[in-house]
């Protein structure tokens, strides 16, 4: 009986890996926010207007799909039974939410015309949303690895 061996932990999924669709949705902000940062930097360096147009669409794409990823994260956090699983999903949700908010402000910033569409504020918001989205992706995808360690023990 398991209870007779308290030192051995049960082999069951304490933290589930991301659902494939959730992972795919999360891939959008993870890829698009950094891409927007790169095109912002290029715009500031070249003043070629097409780069800020690229950024605006990249941010919009990150917000659209990232919004669904965020919703998904919030639901699995709310539905989690294990405290550890809830905490883990909660961290992903908060990181995604912060990335999304920074991205939303940045989308408004990028709706300004001409040189005002990026500026210091645009670059700062791009850096913020990039770091937060990468962090959310990192933590989110760490869950599967934790499970593997648990299972292999």
């Amino acid at each position: 009986m398991l209870s007779a061996q308290p030192a051995v932990r049960p082999i069951r999924p304490l933290r589930r890996s991301l659902h494939p669709l959730h992972a795919l949705l999360m891939a959008f902000p993870v890829a698009l926010f950094p891409s927007a940062l790169l095109s912002d930097v290029t715009y500031v360096k070249t003043a070629q207007i097409q780069w800020t147009n690229f950024s605006a669409w990249l941010i919009t794409g990150a917000l659209l799909f990232g919004g669904f990823a965020l919703l998904w994260s919030a639901i699995v956090t709310w539905a989690a039974r294990e405290p550890m699983e809830r905490r883990h999903n909660g961290v992903v949700t908060v990181l995604l939410a912060l990335a999304w908010i920074a991205g939303l402000f940045n989308a408004f910033q990028h709706s300004h015309d001409g040189w005002a569409s990026v500026g210091t504020m645009g670059v700062v918001l791009s850096v913020l949303s990039t770091i937060l989205a990468l962090a959310a992706g990192w933590v989110g995808h760490s869950q599967g690895r934790v499970l593997a360690v648990e299972a292999g023990r």
């Binding site: 070629q48 207007i49 097409q50 015309d113 001409g114 040189w115 569409s117």
Partner: peptide
């Protein structure tokens, strides 16, 4: 062709 040059 723009408000303030946002089309280049």
């Amino acid at each position: 062709n723009s408000n303030i040059g946002e089309r280049g």
